[in-house]
């Protein structure tokens, strides 16, 4: 079976400093794959290259076998790669539902239409997406007034607007209360199941990572140092040395033996 994403020797340097140095990995279909590592390890750079925001210096990125390296973000999106951002990026002068409608309008290639009223287009579809993420009762609110967790859910609805095959989520749970995090990750897990999406995400909350990822990769100074199941990764001495520390600041006990998606399954 072809992998959803197949990344080979991805590299990027900023002014001589190798931010990402020959990273290779595969995202399997319907998989939740976590990318973790210290700050400055190159996670964001990696993400930005995957969706085309940054031009890699070299390497290859294949989406279901087709090369997408070097394409601009909008083309990568049209090929079915959705993205959510670490710091939410939304259209603040629009309502929640209009934000989703915007993605649908773009998906249906009607961005240059001058006659119809945008507010009337794809309203039902947008509403369905908001319902999926549990935001239907906030559809008419100004998105500038949303709580952070709700913004993240709205971003997920936007990212799902074009039926993506791959979702890139940059710290999807950052800034949420622990309970919310669990809910959001369960939601993502449901989407993975029902829509057949493959998800690559970064996260600093180890409870989220170890609780919800099928596999975990650890990036340090631009290189992948470990890849494996959550249990393998958390017990790896190298990972503990560069990243995890003694485990005093995350839920060490709980989830150590948790199988992936145990909490997420319905």
């Amino acid at each position: 079976m072809t992998d959803a994403l197949e990344v080979r020797d991805l590299a990027k340097a900023f002014g001589g400093v190798k931010a990402v140095d020959g990273v290779s990995f595969a995202l399997r279909e319907r998989e939740m794959l976590a990318l973790i590592g210290p700050n400055g390890a190159g996670k964001s750079t990696c993400f930005n290259m995957l969706n085309g925001q940054l031009k890699p210096d070299g390497g290859s990125i294949r989406l279901f076998g087709a090369e997408i390296l070097g394409l601009p973000p909008r083309k990568v999106w049209r090929l079915g790669v959705g993205r959510t951002f670490q710091i939410t990026a939304t259209f603040t002068s629009m309502t929640v539902i209009e934000n989703v409608q915007m993605a649908l309008i773009s998906h249906h290639r009607r961005l240059r239409a001058m006659l119809p009223f945008a507010g009337a287009l794809y309203k039902d579809e947008a509403y369905d997406l908001l319902e999926l993420v549990g935001m239907e009762d906030q559809s008419g609110r100004a998105c500038g007034m949303l709580a952070y967790g709700d913004l993240k859910r709205m971003e997920l609805a936007i990212a799902l607007a074009n039926d993506p095959r791959v979702l890139l989520m940059d710290e999807p749970a950052a800034g949420m209360a622990p309970q919310e995090r669990v809910q959001l990750m369960e939601l993502v897990a449901r989407v993975v199941q029902s829509r057949g999406v493959s998800v690559l995400f970064t996260e600093h909350d180890m409870d989220v990572v170890f609780g919800h990822a099928d596999r975990v990769m650890v990036l340090d100074r631009g290189r992948l140092i470990v890849e494996g199941t959550p249990a393998e990764v958390r017990n790896n001495p190298d990972v503990q040395a560069v990243y995890l520390g003694t485990g005093a600041v995350y839920g060490k006990e709980k989830g150590a033996d948790a199988t992936p998606r145990a909490e997420a399954g319905e």
């Binding site: 590592g37 210290p38 700050n39 710290e171 950052a174 800034g175 600093h204 180890m206 040395a241 560069v242 990243y243 995890l244 520390g245 003694t246 485990g247 005093a248 600041v249 995350y250």
Partner: peptide
């Protein structure tokens, strides 16, 4: 501690 690696958070503590 927001957005920091667990190991760095320990140093911060």
């Amino acid at each position: 501690s927001e957005g920091l690696a667990p190991k760095i958070v320990e140093q911060m503590a």
